[in-house]
Design a binder for these strands. Structure first.
Length: 220
DNA sequence: TATAGGATTTAC
DNA sequence: TAAATCCTATAG
């Protein structure tokens, strides 16, 4: 699954594939390819190498923890639909809804490796970051609520990574220790294009963010 | 109506 | 280390 023709020949994941717990879907999504037909009609693809699971209303890092609102409405809908939102007033972030109907779960895609030939409409060539991959693939809120089993959005099955690593999620310190430290981020251990490098992880796979940095800082 | 802050990225 | 930048949620 390293060339565009290979992706085109591979099978599209059906909606029911996403109707499982978010952590499972997040893990299994590694190695598959996200494909999007841009506003200019061009096809763009990236191999998914990093994901995060947001597991429900009880997950304090999940947007749905604040209740069912206009913004989070799609998360309560059927699995396999796109949840796209704007953060920091700048970046569009792409998620896929998972779980049973009525369960507000989703998987955030945080990094892709561009399939050769894929260049963003603005010339972007990097996919290592949740805001970067949406620019690369021309994904934005026009796709909010769209299903991901037919164009413009499809996800194609691909070989699983040889090594999958689970770490805490990025940028959710506000959610409290339990949910900020839960290992719900999944990365392809062989990829060099992650949003936060594995080199910054401790030996147990935990992120250094707020964990190792504080515990190992020399008392000076 | 007003305000605070965010599942980030980039530049100084 | 801070700015960019706008939508959502919450308070008044």
């Amino acid at each position: 699954m390293t060339s565009a023709p290979e992706v085109e020949a591979s099978c599209v994941l059906p909606l029911r594939w996403f109707a499982r717990p978010a952590a499972e879907v997040a893990r299994d999504l590694l190695g598959s390819v996200l494909r999007c037909v841009g506003r200019d009609g061009a096809v763009r693809m990236g191999r998914i190498v990093e994901t995060e699971a947001y597991v429900g209303a009880h997950d304090l890092a999940c947007h749905a923890a604040k209740g069912r609102t206009a913004r989070t409405e799609v998360m309560f809908g059927p699995a396999g639909h796109a949840y796209v939102y704007l953060v920091y007033g700048l970046h569009e972030l792409f998620n896929v809804v998972t779980g049973a109907l009525g369960e507000p779960q989703a998987v955030l895609v945080r990094a892709v490796e561009p399939v050769p030939g894929t260049v963003g409409p603005s010339g972007a060539v990097r996919g290592d970051g949740p805001g970067r991959l949406t620019r690369l693939l021309d994904i934005d809120r026009r796709l909010l609520g769209e299903r991901v089993d037919r164009p413009p959005l499809t996800i194609h099955r691909g070989p699983a990574p040889t090594e999958t690593v689970a770490t805490p999620r990025i940028g959710v310190d506000y959610a409290g220790t339990e949910w900020a430290s839960a290992r719900l981020r999944f990365v392809d251990g062989a990829s060099a294009q992650l949003s936060v490098s594995l080199a910054r992880l401790g030996p147990d796979g935990y992120s250094s963010r707020g964990v190792r940095d504080t515990s190992r800082r020399p008392a000076s």
